[in-house]
Each structure stands twice: as C-alpha cells, then as structure tokens.
Design a protein around this nucleic acid. Structure first.
Length: 588
RNA sequence: GGGGGUGUAGUUCAGUUGGUUAGAACGUCUGCCUGUCACGCAGAAGGUCGCGAGUUCGAGUCCCGUCACUCCCGCCA
C-alpha cells in the first residue's frame, strides 16, 4: 500500500452533503463501507462519513479494477472518485457512479455491527466504543452535544461573560459528595482532590472582579451511579456579581430558549415557577414532571376521624394520607393495579390502597372501610370522577411523597402523557437551607454552606426548633422530571456566614483548616454574587431524547465506574506507589 | 451497603419435566447474479452454555458460591 495514502487525491465533498444540484459533477469522497450489496457484475456500496451515507455504484462494465471492489468488506476505509447522478428516474435522491477508488484501510470481522443489524448489548458496545460511536444514531447525539456547547459559548460570549478555567487538582472538601483523591508525589503523604464542582474558585473569581464567569467544567464525584449519573460529568458552571435571583433566572431562560430554538427549532415559553413546598405538596417531588397534571391531594383532614386502621395509624403517627387520581383507569385489572403496588413497595411504601369511583361512590379496594361521608369527601377533595381509579398512600410524609411521586410518574408513562417532544421547564424556588441528618444527629446544608438565607428567615437562627424553617436563596431548574440545574445566591457577609457555620456545628479550628483561605478571601470586599450550574449531560439527554447518560458521553463508564474499553481503573506499578509512599492493603 | 433483571455461536435470541449430535436469525466464508436499497439464490464454517464447586447414571436446565453488565433504594453539600 502506498504510504502517501491520499497523495493529491483530496476529499471534495462529504457523503451526506450531496444533492441534486451536484448531478453531473465529479466528486471525491472519503468514508467507511457501511453496507455492501453485491449483484455480481454490479456492486452497491453505502459509503458513510460523519455527515451521512450515500450510495456508490460500481459497474464492472465501466470500472477497470473490479477485483478491488469485490474485495471490499464492512468498515473498510475508502477514497472514491465518481460522478453524481440521480438515483432512479424520479425523486431528488442522488448516488455516485464510481470511476476510481483507493483502499485506505481494511478491517476484520466486527464484534459489533455498525450498520442497522442486530444491536449488541451495551457492555460489548462499551468495550468497542470507537466502533459504537460510528453508528449514525450515536454520532447524531455527539454532534448535537457539540452544537449545544458551541451554542452556550456563543450566547454567553455575547452576554459579556469570561470563560475561565479553574484547577482540576484542588483541595479536598469532605463536606458533601465523596472526593476522587490524587496523591501528591512532591508533597508526600498529601492529596489533591478532583473538583466536585468549581464552587469555591468561581466565588473567588467574583471576589477578583470577573463579574460574569462561566466554564464548561468537568466535575467528579465518587458516589454510586445511576442511569443519569456518571463519576465524571460536565456542567455549565456560571457565576455573576451584583445580581439577584431574577437576573440569574432571566439569563438562563434566555440561554435555554436560544439553545432550543437554534438546535431543535423549538420555542420555549416563559418558565413557570413553583416553590419547593408547593412542588412537594402537589407532586411529592422537588423535580416534578410537569408535562401532565394529576396533582396529589391531601386527604389527611377529611379522614382525620376514619376508622380504617391503615389510614388512622399513619395519621396518629404524624404522617398523612394522600392520593393520586388515575383518570379513566377504573377498569384496571387486578394485575395492572398490582404493578403500581409494586412501584410503591419498591420505593419503601408498605403498600398502596386503591378504590374506583362509580356512580358518585367509591367501589372496590378499600372502599368498604370508608364511611359514606368519607367517600363523598374523598371524591370532592380529589376531584375524581366516575370511571377514575384512586391510589392512596398513608405513611410518614416523606414516604407518602416518594410513593405517590413514583406512582404518578408510572401512571403518566403508562397513560402516554410523557411526550418526548414536550419540554416542561420550571424553576423550583425557596428550598430549605438545612435539614436534620438523623443518622449523624446533626444539621447539614441542603445545598452548600455558602448559600445566603432569606432575609426574613434570619430570625430562625435563634432557636433550633426553627432551623428547618430557614429557606435559602436556592433554586433548581427542572425539565420533564429531571433536575438539570441547581444554584443559589451566595452568602457574601461574614457575619451571616458565621451564623451558618455555628448552626452546622463547626469549630473555628476545623473551619480554618478546611476553608481558611476562602473565609479570608471573603473579608476583602466580596461583592454580592450568585450562580447556577446546568448539567450539560442531562441537557443533552433531554434534547436528544437519550435514555441513558452513557449515550451522551463519548467515552462513558459503567455503573461500577469502570471504563470497559481501556480497563481502567487499573493496578499500577509498585514503583509508582513507592514514589507516592502508598501501600495497598492486601485484604481487598 | 441492600433489592430486582440479564448472561447459550462474532451479534441478538430460542432451548419443554434433567435425557440422543445444543437450534434460529443477522453477521462471516465459498459459489452464482448488472439496479440493489435489510438485495436475492445455493452451500459451509462457527459453541469453555459467564466462571467455580455440588446433586445425579446423566446438568444449558436443579442447589450453593462467585464474576460481569443493568435498573432501583441508600448515597449524590
């Protein structure tokens, strides 16, 4: 094979860009054999490059070295010269009648099929990720991701933002998620951490005066994974000075409107807002799927004197009885209902009660345990109509919320209410600042410790009984039941920051060691500031309708945080460990 | 850390009550075919039934353990 592979033979066009306007023109293409249809003296090759696929025709009557063409196999790499012609008599579709080819490389039989053959399981596709990434479906996602990121840069540059890189090797901050640690050779026995987010650095940049900052930031968290969670992921990290929550909402809404219009041609309307308390009350979740209604209803009041033990005992224990109405589902079979009971149990519910509504009365399920008056009240409060099915959960509030949120989502899916083409964004606001950690018997920050409390809630710092009432200037952006962004207005006043640390039970010595440099920085004229960090992987998932976060990352890891292709993480040479002064315990 | 699912040919899957030589489709290979477009036709090769141990005259199938992937709970400021 000639090592000057292409010589003067350059690519003139991309496969996917040929159209009827080029009919009669000579073109040269580079690409892979996607599919081959061999008719003996006539061979059709579907040639694929990153732009798409075009059919190339090889006619033995008009092609000198036909043996070369007969030897072509799937995924061989070609340079092809030929003339564009219409494919068939009618239509706009074109093909290329080849006059010359150069075989640039070959390939053995493939472990996965790149064309539309049987799709291998994900673990095999992950091992051969570079081949899986040749599949047009996956290429389209990665191309859309690229467009989203360039769109973000274009928009924020236009808004006067500075893109600034922050360190990947940074100080470990044991609050919150588990850090990925990196041992230091020059500082033996000490460790860097990979950033869970550039939080502290972006606040320092505000102190430095770069009053509009952003970064397409890689973040790392050593926690267990999910279908929408990877150990390393990408955030659009943003921070602004001299802004209010309203400013951050406005610029983010415009950013998302810009991206959806540019990339999907979709007009997003004004993002509605919901307080955290309202979201929990109506949907049992702080990231509700707002593509459909079916709000939860609280029946605790109308059932306060019920004799039905299951409900009564939950109420007596300080819990609640709530329901969700499944419209028109009164004819569900026992088996269908059991599937929702399974959902409830899966989420920690002891069970899931149900009744039908018929002739203005409750029927079936637990109906016989409820008095006429209670039945009437339930129908009135829930708004259920004849032919509807009602699911009831009774337990502590947190379990009831979790269960009915799950049941509502499952119902939405089953009833076809989760339309992929619809994008239901909403701001969730007024989150609590602290929550009580039962396990460790202490208060912890819900978001992070540098969030500003609401002015009117400063009074609650006086009394531990009120700590749970303190709300922060905290907000999430949700879409279709997924949290895609989370942010806050930061605390820029030392006296308020001190109150927060006191509440969380930090000793001065510990603070100095962990955050001393940051607390010192806050003293020197910190401007009021705040920010947000949309998750780019989840945004790409929503915009490309991907089912898994692994589909939107070029080289993802498995649920056990392993790269099946490179087999990392891996063991390292003993000499590497010795340099670092690290010894591996043998028992694991 | 806990619970569920999956693992059989290169790939996707079937495999009955534990019983002869473990099947199909796609892919691969050989031959034929000048308008295919999931090309077609004829033929062939291809198996550590994830791994280990056990029960049994006999295990893909049953028991135990283990590994990998996946979904969920905990966890993810």
């Amino acid at each position: 094979m000639n090592l000057d592979f292409l010589g003067d033979n350059k690519r003139s066009h991309y496969c996917g860009n040929l159209d009827a306007s080029l009919v009669g023109r000579q073109v040269s293409l580079c690409g892979w054999v996607h599919r081959r249809r061999d008719l003996g003296k006539l061979i059709f090759v579907q040639l694929r490059d990153v732009s798409g696929i075009v059919q190339v025709v090889f006619d033995s009557g008009a092609f000198d070295d036909f043996a070369k063409v007969e030897a072509l196999r799937a995924e061989y790499v070609l340079w092809v010269k030929g003339v564009v012609q219409k494919k068939g008599d009618s239509g706009q579709e074109v093909e290329v009648l080849a006059s010359d080819i150069l075989l640039l490389n070959n390939a053995p039989e493939l472990p996965v099929q790149v064309n539309e053959g049987t799709m291998a399981d994900e673990d095999i596709r992950l091992k051969y990720r570079y081949l899986d990434l040749r599949r047009p479906a996956l290429q389209n996602i990665i191309k859309t991701r690229s467009k989203i990121i360039s769109g973000i840069r274009r928009f924020l540059d236009g808004e006067g933002f500075f893109e600034i890189e922050t360190p990947i090797l940074m100080k470990s901050t044991p609050e919150g998620a588990r850090d990925y640690l990196v041992p230091s050779r020059l500082q033996n026995g000490k460790f860097f951490a990979l950033p869970q987010s550039p939080q502290i650095y972006k606040q320092l940049l505000m102190i430095s005066g770069f009053d509009k900052y952003y970064q397409i930031a890689k973040c790392f968290r050593d926690e267990d994974l999910r279908a929408d969670r990877q150990p390393e992921f990408t955030q659009l990290d943003m921070e602004m000075s001299f802004v209010t929550q309203e400013d951050i909402f406005a610029i983010n809404q415009r950013l998302f409107q810009y991206l959806f219009k540019e990339i999907l041609g979709v007009d997003l309307s004004e993002f509605p807002r919901l307080t955290y308390n309202q979201a929990m009350e109506d949907y049992g979740s702080d990231k509700p799927d707002l593509r459909f209604g079916m709000k939860l209803k609280n029946l605790s009041e109308v059932l306060q004197d019920t004799e039905f033990k299951v409900f009564a005992s939950a109420l007596a224990d300080g819990g609640s009885v709530r329901c969700v109405v499944a419209p028109g589902c009164g004819s569900f079979s026992r088996k269908q209902i059991d599937e929702f009971v399974a959902v409830a149990k899966h989420l920690g519910g002891k069970g899931l009660a149900h009744t039908k509504v018929e002739g203005g009365k409750l029927e079936g399920g637990v109906a016989k345990f409820l008095s006429d008056a209670e039945q009437k009240a339930i129908i009135k409060t829930s708004g259920a109509k004849d032919g509807d099915l009602i699911f009831y959960a009774s337990d502590s509030n947190s379990v009831v919320y979790k269960v009915l949120d799950g049941v509502r989502r499952a119902l939405g899916k089953q009833l076809g209410l989760c339309d992929d083409e619809q994008f239901a964004f909403a701001w969730i606001t007024d989150f609590p600042l602290f929550e009580y950690d039962q396990e460790n018997g202490r208060w912890v920050a819900c978001h992070h410790m540098f969030t500003n409390p609401k002015e009117e809630h400063l009074k609650y710092f006086e009394n531990e009984a009120d700590y749970g009432k303190i709300q922060g200037m905290l907000y999430d952006l949700v879409c279709n039941g997924m949290e895609i962004s989370s942010g806050s207005i930061r605390c820029h006043r030392a006296d308020i920051q001190k109150k927060i640390f006191d509440l969380l039970g930090f000793e001065q010595e510990e603070l100095d060691e962990k955050f001393g440099f940051f607390l010192e920085a806050l003293k020197y004229g910190t401007p009021p500031h705040g920010g947000i960090a949309p998750g780019i992987d989840r945004l790409v998932m929503i915009m490309t309708k991907a089912a898994s976060i692994r589909d939107v990352i070029a080289f993802p890891k498995t649920l056990k945080a392993v790269d099946l292709m490179s087999q990392s993480p891996s063991q390292v040479d003993i000499s590497q460990l010795e340099e670092l002064g690290i010894e591996i315990k043998k028992n694991k």
